[in-house]
Design a protein around this nucleic acid. Structure first.
Lengths: 251, 251
DNA sequence: CGATGTCTTGACGCTTCTCAACGATCGTGG
DNA sequence: CCACGATCGTTGAGAAGCGTCAAGACATCG
């Protein structure tokens, strides 16, 4: 157990946006055993590389450190459905909780590094006190809310709403790392966006163009400048920071 | 602690389809403390009654004993989105895991009885051994898969596919209690089905009629006879028991 | 330089949404 | 017992939105 401990300061900073940091940095001061456990388990993935496949045994959950991944499922005819995009700091791999096998596939959208946390570790550490179990459940609950957010997107009937909601959500997620960010570098293709939104890729493309014509965004391939966040938010119809009072619910 | 213990045999039978039975009936023989804990906490709900609202503090999770509920979320303008239907034996209430507050609303679709299990109990018992934590995580994972199933429905672009998938899924869920069942008694209105499928209610109605014209189902209001399960399955495009080999995925 | 993958744009047809009317069922009260 | 209203489900007609097919623009890479 005398392997070299990497620079803890660096490690701490890298872990700042991490969803599992409650589990990693519990002591908060000394180089705990936990931090040593996790530090070495970084995996590198080339663009297009698969992190796990459908049917793979439940091994680890992963935190994205850099790059991005998509999770996908396939219909009977081999059509691909994109279930989610995973950006730095976000969790991926909890889909195996139910059966012990992954039921989705995870693919890197660009060169990507992930931090692997063995399920074994999570479970063992979750089973120490009710407090730690609660933390674990909260993490899982947040992951489930991502999926709920996807449902919310898909329930919108207008393609323009789905697209606005997608862009707004991407912006919010990216702003967690860089406040005030106003330019998105989308790691996924239009087709992947379309397969996430349940639309044809042409519809997504036209939606982007339309938003640009209306002065809301500025499109240059996968780089999307956000010119009018407030209008984007209204188009997406998300509660957000409302300057206008929310409408009353009809009885 | 000398309150009367209800008939354990009856209780066991009533709990047979329950998702939490791993947690209730762990000893499997004697009248354990657990069974006494849960036995008395049955709640009755009239049709239209609310089990919990958005913002309610996380108290319990619930198992449906009889009747049915829907969970709903509301958009900014008060439009209702149905996120799920909950039939006997199924779990409801895990949406509060992330924040400690419910983020959806649960309403009884008919006269309904639920069994309330305090989160406190789940957490405490989850935090005893890794084995119990694993059980707890599995239960939560299954709940998340329900939400995934909803995404799969909403990703279908054809209304007819969504409707077929909905009916097929309802059939499968009901057949868990009564094998060979071929008649659905839907507890929800067409409008609620529509708000679950992301369609207009008229489209749902027309979809039902169309399936009837094609001899797949027989519609009589909320009673739907399933005449051709296999065809329904094919229309829904679910893997199921495939007599035909699944197509190869294109590379 | 051509080949390939990606994104955009156009035209057309089809599905679904919207608005509207009608019929059926059920519970209530006269 | 029947009339009545309310709720719910069905059906129709028209319009709008989206998917499909097709072509072209652009960048990257071998």
């Amino acid at each position: 157990m005398s392997r070299p401990i990497p620079d803890l300061k660096l490690l701490r900073r890298a872990c700042a946006p991490c969803t599992l940091r409650q589990f990693c940095q519990q002591s908060g001061s000394a180089p705990t055993e936990l931090e040593r456990d996790f530090a070495g388990q970084v995996q590198h993935l080339e663009r297009g590389a698969t992190l796990f496949r459908v049917g793979d045994a439940q091994g680890s959950v992963y935190i994205v450190r850099s790059g991005a991944l998509k999770t996908t499922a396939f219909t009977e005819e081999g059509e691909e459905h994109v279930l989610g995009f995973h950006l730095p700091g976000e969790l991926i791999g909890l889909d195996s909780l139910a059966s012990g096998e992954h039921c989705v596939e995870a693919v890197a959208l660009s060169e990507t590094r992930v931090c692997a946390v063995p399920m074994q570790v999570l479970v063992t550490r979750g089973a120490t006190t009710p407090g730690r179990t609660r933390d674990l459940l909260q993490i899982i609950g947040r992951d489930a809310q991502e999926s709920q957010a996807h449902v919310e997107v898909l329930m919108r009937r207008q393609a323009s709403e789905r697209i606005a909601l997608f862009l707004h959500s991407m912006l919010v997620r990216c702003q967690r790392h860089e406040a005030g960010l106003d330019e998105l570098h989308l790691p996924m293709s239009r087709e992947e966006v379309a397969r996430y939104l349940g639309l044809a890729l042409e519809t997504v493309s036209r939606g982007f163009t339309r938003l640009q014509d209306e002065g809301v965004i500025l499109v240059a391939g996968r780089v999307v400048g956000i010119l009018d966040v407030e209008r984007l938010r209204r188009l997406a119809q998300v509660p957000g920071t409302d300057h206008e009072p929310p409408l009353q619910r009809q009885a």
